[in-house]
Design a protein around this nucleic acid. Structure first.
Lengths: 86, 86
DNA sequence: TTAATATTTAGACATTTATCTAAATAACTA
DNA sequence: TAGTTATTTAGATAAATGTCTAAATATTAA
């Protein structure tokens, strides 16, 4: 859970997640949406990948990123048990 | 959401939340459970309070902390919309 | 093969964060 | 009132983080 919370604890990374919610995008397309250098975006994508929140696939010159929501299941359950005040 | 994600992005604070899930506790009782100084725990509690994840009430000499799960509703919904791939 | 494009890696730097000790504040108790 | 206990505030420090530029790597195209 540690890498997941870490990944979510950044506004830029959350926005990347929202973008990928709509459609898969390559690194350059993602970077275009932000006033942040490409290396920085690449670093954010790496942190999202470490948390398994995104997957990446090389397609020729490009690297396409996709959102992986299955990992959010754990978080969802954690929150639900808190709300249960079990 | 920023202060919420920030508050959750720390193992000690998540453990404090789990403790408070069971029952309300004062600052000293919480601090006893960790190998961390009282000022540090006080600081963690402050961050949790800023995120509105806990509330505090002075009871005589003591300050009692309670978990506030209503704030998790937003997080829950955010996660659910991601999973919807809307 | 050479040049252009896409992405990541490396290294530097400023800011934030988690921690500590010492001191301050507040509230009981003798 | 003085002393004790509970908690927070202040200030310091080491480590982590987000950002940048420059360079490296990989792929496509001429």
């Amino acid at each position: 859970m540690n890498s997941l919370f870490k990944a979510l604890n950044d506004e830029t990374r959350r926005q990347i997640i929202e973008l990928l919610k709509e459609k898969d995008m390559n690194a350059g397309e993602i970077a275009e949406r932000f006033n942040i250098s490409k290396p920085s975006i690449s670093h954010h994508l790496d942190i999202l990948r470490q948390a398994d929140l995104v997957t990446s696939e090389k397609k020729g010159q490009f690297v396409e990123y996709s959102l992986n929501t299955t990992i959010l299941e754990d978080l969802l359950n954690w929150i639900l048990t808190l709300k249960d005040k079990s």
